[in-house]
Amino acid sequence: MMILFLITAFVAIAASILAITRTNAVHALLNLIVSFIAIAIILFLLGAPFIAALEVVVYAGAIMVLFIFVIMMLNVGAETEEKKSKWLSPKIWIGPAILSLVLFLELTYVVLSESEILLQSSQITPKEVGISLFTQYILGIELVAIMLMAGIIGAYHISRVKRKVKHRFLKEE
C-alpha cells in the first residue's frame, strides 16, 4: 500500500511539474490529465472509490475536455511556443518559487505538528456519502445547484457574440 502510494504520488507530482513547465498548451493539458488520474488512484487508496470515479469522470473528463475545446478553438498551441521559451528564464519563476516554498514550509509546519496517525484503509461507501449528502448537507446541494445554473447562464451570456445586423422585426425604420 505504502509503495503504491509513493509511486503514485511521485507520478502525480512529476506530471504536475511537467504540466506547469510545458510551452505547448496541449502538452501541458495532457500532463495535467495524467496528474489527475494519478490523484484518482490515490483517492481510491484512501478509501474513497466514489470520489475517485467522480474525479476521472468530471475533472479529467469534462473540465479538461472543456479546456482542450477552447484551446483548439482559439488555436493556442502554436503561438505560445515561441513566447514561452523566452519566458522560462529563472528570473520569472524564482520569485513565485520562493513564495510557494515559504507557503509550503508553513503548511508542513501545520501538518507535522499533529501526532502521527496511520490511515485505515477501510472504505467509505458511496451509500454513506449519499445519505450524508442528502440529509446533512441538503442545503449545500441546493446551493450548488443554483451555482451551476448561474454558471450556465453566465457562460452563455458572456460568450454571446453581438450580431451586427438586427432581425428584421427588431429593426427601426
Binding site: M2, F5, I42, L45, V111, E114, E116, L118, L119
Partner: peptide, 11 residues
Amino acid sequence: SQIPVHYAMLL
C-alpha cells in the same frame, strides 16, 4: 498497510 497522514497531507 497504512499510510501515515503526514505523507498524504504533504503530498
